[in-house]
Computed example of a mutant assay.
Amino acid sequence: MFQFGGFNMIFPDVGRSFQSSYKCFSVSMLPGNERHDVEKGGKIIMPPSALDALTRLNVEYPMLFKLINSKKNRNSHAGVLEFVADEGKVYLPYWMMDNLLLEEGDIITIESVSLPVATFSKFQPHSTDFLDITNPKAVLENALRNFACLTTGDVVAIKYNKKVYELCVLETKPGNAVSIIECDMNVEFEAPVGYKEPGHPKKEEKPEEENVENMEEDVNTFSGSGNRLDGKKKKEAQLSQPVMKKILARGIPDYDYKIGVIKFDRNVKPISDRVQKEEAIASEPEDFQGQGFSMKKSRK
């Protein structure tokens, strides 16, 4: 506050950022009742003195913070849920401590920041179990209501049907850290870690020699005793009689054909055989000889 000629002029600390260091602990170490709602989201619990300092600095709302682990050179971003922690301490979700490589009681630096509103984000599930969810976008949208911002490279944890799913933030736009409070954000999913697309098994091609052997086996497939169409049993004489092969006439296929065997059948008989047959026919007596008679009586 400065005095000029009796006028009191107060210049508020506009534009100054909040920065402080605290001992960090997981939410399970928070005294009192268990706070399961903190584990489900991306917000932290800070001490009341932080609220007083933020109010005096006129920090923009919503209050967003950058969390820095100087020893491990890791950082992330978060919102604030409540100012009820013990002085000098802050409480973080366990998945956030895991991202920052923090142990119970480690020192963490917290700075107030202003982040752009998110327009796009891309996630990759760490397990193929995430594919069992019927509508993953709706589940993620419902889980992100407990988050204030996203940081590229973080692995966030969401709970659905009593099961925790971890998703890596692969990309955020328009920056590496974005605010997701009251925004219209497009969401995409990358294939889960360890996912393999189902492939079609290739048919093994058998060599030509095996195919020829199979064809030869198929020729003798129809073996066994025959049956009559009228249902009667064959006579014993027919069963005991050997089957005689008949010479097939021209035009009828040879059903006994074997692969690899070529036959040259000739139906033309030698001249000597034909002459003997003609002489035998001429020597036979004529069966029908004599005078013929008419059934009708002739008129005289």
Rank of each mutant, 00 (worst) to 15 (best):
P174V: 05
D106M: 11
D265I: 12
E60F: 00
C168T: 07
S225K: 14
N73P: 00
F264S: 12
A118T: 07
A282C: 07
V261E: 13
D254T: 06
K196Y: 11
N69C: 05
F65K: 00
M1C: 07
R250H: 07
E216C: 09
V38T: 03
I281K: 15
L57D: 01
I10A: 07
I110F: 02
I262M: 11
F7C: 01
P62D: 08
R299C: 05
K245C: 04
C183R: 05
K159W: 01
K232R: 13
A53I: 10
L101M: 10
L170S: 02
S294F: 05
S127Q: 04
E197L: 11
F11T: 10
E82F: 05
M97C: 05
P31H: 01
T109E: 15
F7I: 03
L140H: 02
K23C: 04
L92T: 06
K296W: 02
K300T: 10
Y22V: 04
M63L: 13
R299F: 05
P48M: 05
S76H: 01
S17Y: 09
S223E: 04
D154V: 08
F264G: 07
E141L: 06
G5C: 04
P31I: 02
N161H: 04
K40R: 15
V27R: 00
D218R: 13
D86R: 12
K202G: 06
Y94K: 12
C24Y: 00
Y165H: 13
L54P: 00
M96C: 06
T119Q: 08
G79M: 10
